[in-house]
Design a protein around this nucleic acid. Structure first.
Lengths: 153, 153
DNA sequence: ATATAACAATTCTACCCTAAAGTATTGATG
DNA sequence: CATCAATACTTTAGGGTAGAATTGTTATAT
């Protein structure tokens, strides 16, 4: 039916425009640090990990970034001195990334203001609306993953 | 409060992961045509415009794409023969983009299956849930735009 | 008329992103 | 044990993205 298709497209347009606006706004929070969004994501995963660091493979999956993409992001963070690579003790294929003290310090300086901006953004909704939104988005993500596993219909 | 901050971050993570999953899934619908998402967006704006085409400036705003970015996208579409540039009759600064017959044909072949996939995706939600989702996303976009106009707090 | 400001498009740089192919390494199977 | 598939990372090719600087053009205010 045309009406359900129009409704679907309207939601999708809302999604795209919201993503564009929000992305631009949040970006301002970390721009001054010299970090990019993807780089901040990597630092966050490492900061949340134990002191043994995290495998590149794990970072890639948690951030929804392809391995080939991650190689370059980690390269630049390593060059900037924010992390270091180390061989995985038990698996010669794997590489670990570890936060340097400088990297940890930068993260701890930048991240709180980032979360504060996210909180300020989300305060446009009540907490129950936030829960609802997260639920709706999760259901869409699940459906998308299901469609992704199917052949193109 | 920590709890509202956690809630806010959880919603934002849902948003990011949903975007990643959905983006990957929808991409499969147009990949075979050789078009990219941004290119399909430009063709859509032109198809919806009158036969006089659309100004690059207008396309840039409607797709949330910076002008510098749009130049390259239009370059590639022009090279592929899907659109042509023409000078704006009344304003020598402005440039119009016009769909070629081949471009229109390709669009009309690709776009219906794209909207069908969006509809399939959104059918994970009821129509009233879709309305609700669009409303919540619009409110976030408005808040983000407001924050964007303010100095970094 | 002329200086000034605002605007449209382009160019340039650095980064992000995916898909696909390539190199090692690991683990499971016959 | 030899083979073969899976895994981890890198490389390459083709784009997408924002931001800043540049070149013309148009509009506005002296």
């Amino acid at each position: 039916m045309a009406s359900t298709e129009q409704s679907a497209m309207r939601v999708w347009r809302s999604f795209v425009s919201a993503k564009a606006e929000i992305g631009r706004t949040l970006q301002r929070g970390w721009r001054a640090s010299g970090l990019t969004g993807a780089q901040l994501g990597v630092l966050r995963v490492l900061a949340e990990a134990s002191n043994e660091g995290a495998q590149l493979h794990e970072i890639s999956e948690r951030l929804y970034v392809t391995p080939g993409n991650l190689t370059g992001i980690v390269d630049r963070l390593e060059e900037a001195g924010h992390l270091s690579r180390a061989p995985h003790p038990g698996d010669k294929r794997a590489t670990l990334a570890l936060l340097t003290p400088a990297g940890r310090e930068l993260f701890e300086q930048v991240y709180p203001s980032h979360t504060a901006r996210v909180r300020q953004l989300m305060s446009a909704l009540t907490v129950s609306e936030q829960k609802l939104l997260a639920d709706l988005l999760s259901r869409l993500a699940v459906r998308a993953a299901e469609m992704h596993e199917q052949p193109v219909g």
